[in-house]
């Protein structure tokens, strides 16, 4: 079996999560997350998404973050529970309120589903964030495929990249 036909079993951050271990309904935990102006700058630069509202001022009073800044915290919660590298497959997002710098958000996530399709294994998780008043700020539902290589391949390889990464924008 060639290396390309192996699925990674472990990487520098530990053993990869296996499909059978993923527990649908598991609460992935929660985190407090406060966007800073520096994080907004980084997100704008990563995406070349520059707008007056993100960089200077907005109708909501002060800067707001590009909504896609919400990508990472739910992913961090997934990675704290399961070492899933894989590839991003599906991204549902709802921007309910602006994400503002200096406002602490409470982000929670849960495993919503898992399934096999075309010999690939998928995990689905949902997350939401609320502001200090308990108002919803964003909701999201994500699907990741556990491996690019199909599930018939032996899980034996050693990977370099990991699903577990530094928690930063």
């Amino acid at each position: 079996m060639s290396e390309a036909r192996k699925r990674v079993a472990a990487d520098a951050r530990g053993r990869r999560a296996q499909f059978d271990e993923i527990e649908v309904g598991r609460v992935l935990g929660e985190m407090e997350w406060t966007v800073t102006e520096a994080m907004i700058d980084t997100q704008c630069a990563l995406d070349a998404d520059y707008a007056l509202w993100y960089s200077v001022d907005s109708p909501w009073g002060g800067r707001v973050a590009p909504p896609q800044i919400s990508y990472r915290p739910p992913r961090w919660l997934l990675s704290r529970a399961y070492n899933v590298r894989g590839l991003f497959y599906r991204w549902e997002m709802e921007n309910i309120r602006p994400i503002r710098p200096g406002v602490p958000l409470r982000v929670t996530a849960t495993v919503a589903d898992k399934y096999v399709r075309n010999d690939r294994e998928f995990i689905v998780f949902e997350a939401s964030a609320t502001d200090p008043d308990g108002a919803l700020v964003f909701r999201t539902r994500r699907t990741h495929v556990l491996d690019f290589v199909d599930r018939n391949a032996e899980r034996a390889g050693e990977g370099i990249d990991s699903g577990i990464k530094a928690e930063r924008i």
Partner: peptide, 8 residues
């Protein structure tokens, strides 16, 4: 920013 939805 406020009310947008997207599924990709």
């Amino acid at each position: 920013i406020e009310g947008g939805r997207c599924e990709l």
